[in-house]
Design a protein around this nucleic acid. Sequence first.
RNA 1: UCCAGCGUCGCCUAACGGUAAGGCAACCGGCUGUUAACCGGUCUGAUGGAGGUUCGAUCCCUCCCGCUGGAGCCA
Length: 465
Amino acid sequence: MIISVRQGLRGEVEVGTKVRVRGWVRTRRDSKAGLSFIHVSDGSCFDPIQVVAPSTLANYEAEIAKLTSGCSIEAEGTLVASQGKGQAFEIQADAVEVVGTVDDPERYPIQPKAHSLEFLREVAHLRPRTNTFGAVARVRHTMAQAIHRYFHERGFVWVTTPIITASDCEGAGQMFRVSTLDLANLPRTPDGKVDFSQDFFGKEAFLTVSGQLAVEGYCLALSKVYTFGPTFRAENSNTTRHLAEFWMIEPEIAFADLAADADLAEDFLKYVIGAVLTERPDDMKFFADRIEKTAISRLEKVAAERFERIEYAEAIRLLQASGKKFEFPVAWGADLQTEHERYLTEEKIGRPVVVMNYPAEIKAFYMRLNDDEKTVAAMDVLTPGMGEIIGGSQREERLDVLEQRLAAHKLDPEAYSFYLDLRRYGTVPHAGFGLGFERLVAYVTGVGNIRDAIPYPRTPGHAAF
RNA sequence: UCCAGCGUCGCCUAACGGUAAGGCAACCGGCUGUUAACCGGUCUGAUGGAGGUUCGAUCCCUCCCGCUGGAGCCA
């Protein structure tokens, strides 16, 4: 029977069974006892399985003894209890078929040795064969599954909001244009502007920067909804936590206020982190051993401890009372800088913090104005090490106030007519938040750079693979 | 986009301005039920690109390209 490496190593297959594994060679060690030990990985779990190939096999000299890292093979044999140390089970091979060889072993980038993450980014198509990126891929998958499961089990409906949007009013950043016009020969209107009426959608179109505004319509019908999909920002950001193309999760709940939103964010994060700890202990152990010492302990802490909740005003007071010298001055009305967030989560409080009720001027138009008329019902979840991982708010559900807020932000109400409709017809208090999936993956795995938390990262100047 | 640093064999790193060194990998051999093994040997490069200073530049200067980190923007 064909088995995965995972099945073989976990004892899911009875000893003595004839099995067949298929995968890629990690290492080969030869023994004078007339054996070769081949570590084979198929990605189904962290560890490779050991295939013991006796030199009596017909193709031993010609093929098996020449296997190098990266070769693909199919091995057939008996699953046995291992005589050696380091693994419980191994495969005593009857046949090892070489499926694909490595043309030039010296040039094969994934050698059985330590590689820098920077180098591996240059071979993004081969890096999933490494311990690190195999583990990241499995953890990422586990997290995606946990996210859908979390929402599904609580009655949320997954809403796939459009990737292409004809409104540039999503208000979250620079957008990528989507067009079928011939850039070398653009149609013009009489006054010389580009005539987008001739474009594919009959108007300007872009890649979405957020599904939030669109999903609110579904929230005000299905009560509990979420988006989980790709998002695009054309910002020239070159940092360890920005991508031009990333995946975002945006739950939106009706009949809910900011406190409920914060509760959801906390419960949600704890669930996803808990799922990774229980479902991927092998990968997490690797991260803790090789990538980031506190990978597991840090997550256990986050899963166990209650998130601190503080008012924005209180955060300002804490920063002012810290006695620290910050590069950016701390004063009510200013946004929290990275250094401020760091101080709060890493030094002062030492665990995740939810900062709530920010000054209205520094936040988006759709966030609900508080009774003090100076702050809005916004919240950021800050984590030690990653900074802002979630940003959310209670939405402004009052038509008149929303119209005032649009005006204050100098936005055209015409462009938001659908959004205003939701306040005209059966409006209810509602709230939601946005979570950058890759930021969470980076946080959970401990990889320092978000470019290592997604299979093929897109950043300014980089769209290879 | 701004600031800082870096760019030397497939990979990682070394080299007071004076003929480019080592480790890993690869290859060959030895040893071993091995396990990112161990031991020995072999091979590999004119130092990101273009100028300049100098008798002479990996090392100094200028510009360009690329990368990394920090910041801004944000998820």
